[in-house]
């Protein structure tokens, strides 16, 4: 969500004490290559969203869920509208 250049140092006490990230043991093989690339670097840094940001993210998530649900319903009704009549003319 945030670009690297848009993250600034926060002046003051952190809201929640950050725990040092545990060292990630590398995994062997292809699975390891994929999984390890998804792990955050163990620098101890993390982004903490404020309450307002967390609420905004939750609202965005709800909108996305609603939009996906509406899309599924739309495609279903569309299919029934365009092809539903074929049920009546099929061979029994």
């Amino acid at each position: 969500m945030l670009d690297k250049g848009q993250i600034h140092g926060w002046e003051g006490e952190p809201e929640e004490q950050a725990k040092p990230a545990a060292a990630v043991a590398s995994r062997p093989g292809l699975t390891g290559a994929i999984m390890d690339s998804r792990e955050a670097l163990p620098t101890g840094e993390r982004v903490t969203l404020s309450l307002e940001q967390t609420a905004a993210r939750r609202r965005r998530g709800q909108w996305i869920a609603l939009a996906l649900f509406a899309f599924v319903i739309l495609v279903f009704v569309l299919t029934m509208t365009k092809m539903g009549a074929n049920i009546l003319v099929r061979d029994l």
Partner: peptide
């Protein structure tokens, strides 16, 4: 790098409605 927590001061980006 220190173990500081980084908090976005650009609250607007993460607060996009």
């Amino acid at each position: 790098m220190s173990e500081a927590t980084i908090v976005s001061t650009t609250t607007a980006i993460a607060s996009a409605s």
